Simulated scan of single mutants.
Amino acid sequence: MRVLVAMSGGVDSSVVAALLVEQGHEVVGATLQLYDHGAAIRKKGACCAGQDIHDARDVADRLGIAHYVLDREQVFRREVIGDFADTYARGETPIPCIRCNQTVKFRDLAALAADLGCEALATGHYARRVDGVHGAELHRAADAARDQSYFLAATTRTQLTLARFPLGDMPDKASVRALAARFGLAVADKPDSQDICFVPEGRYDTLVGRLRPEALAAGEIATSDGRVLGTHEGIARYTVGQGRGLGTASWDGADKLFVAGVDAPARRVIVAPRGAIESTQAIAAEVNWLVDAPDAPLRCQVKLRAREAPRDATVAWDAATGLLRITLDAPGIVAPGQACVMYDGDRVLGGGFLRARGSVDSARAAA
């Protein structure tokens, strides 16, 4: 086939390109430029930046394949970085990797693949695409420690039909680096990207403050019954379940306190003991189904955060409102803004973005 490979300049996507060339496919490489070259080239641990573009081009030259660089700075700034800052300003916790996959990666690269006459779009994600009875299915990777299926839950069924994930069956990252060495790729020992790619130094609050200054305005830290225990320097610095950074509001008598919620209009952070912040109920919007949407309550497993294990739950889909109502078998921490991804064993059924109970934005829910 003619295959478009999304080449970030890292070892994973480089190995994907090399494997497909070795298998006899006609491979075309594409790299997304998401930052200004001059600024990006100095960023350590960032992907899709200056040095990474050079690395991707070098790999393409070694493999003898065509390579394109797509300028997506403005789109990335608007749809990923802007959404990141907006989500914090609403008092929620964003998950930008899903937004990036949903927009500048799969949407834009799928369009490029069509323009170039490619029959497939391959990426370096650790996930598996399985041809099922009713079409392409998304499954977790063989290496559970590196599985990225959670971050691909917003991929549409049409995009999944086009997608290929050659690393999905790899047993571990060491095997991928060994392949890179065998192919003679200079990126074989290149470190993995760290933190959020556009905030490589980890100071996301500085970025949010520049774009949404109100998210770093001072406010109160209080209990759910209104007792003020302390102050904070911006709601963007807090997420549901967080126990650090509360200062004098870290304890209420003998009880250790955690963030239970964020009231953005009042610039107030709500705290409570650990047991009080857990819930068995959640709501998700912007739901993307990778199976036929169920017309009755569905038993499945859900992940409410990228680094937690799937937990048993019952979900109910309301097509009229576009909302997914989740009932967990055991209480968990529900952080609005994060993703809820549904699984049946290893298979991804779909996913959406968690919303605060009772304050669902109908416009975003219908998006």
Rank of each mutant, 00 (worst) to 15 (best):
G253E: 07
R164C: 11
G245M: 13
Q33P: 02
A306Y: 14
V75K: 13
Y343E: 13
A114N: 08
L349I: 13
E26V: 12
V360Y: 02
F84P: 02
V315T: 07
R244P: 10
A6D: 08
D195R: 06
Q194I: 14
L162N: 05
F183E: 12
L304Q: 08
R57W: 14
D195W: 04
G230E: 04
E220R: 14
R311E: 08
G219H: 05
L324E: 04
V199F: 08
G132A: 02
R177L: 06
E201R: 13
G358F: 10
G226Y: 15
A217Y: 10
A330M: 09
L324I: 10
A153H: 08
I277N: 05
D52R: 07
G332I: 03
R347H: 12
F198S: 03
A236R: 03
D115A: 06
L138S: 06
R268M: 10
P166C: 09
T321K: 06
F151Y: 08
G202F: 11
E119C: 09
I53M: 12
R212N: 14
R325M: 12
P171V: 09
V15F: 02
D172L: 03
L328V: 09
G10K: 04
A284Q: 07
A141N: 06
C118K: 07
P94I: 00
K44C: 13
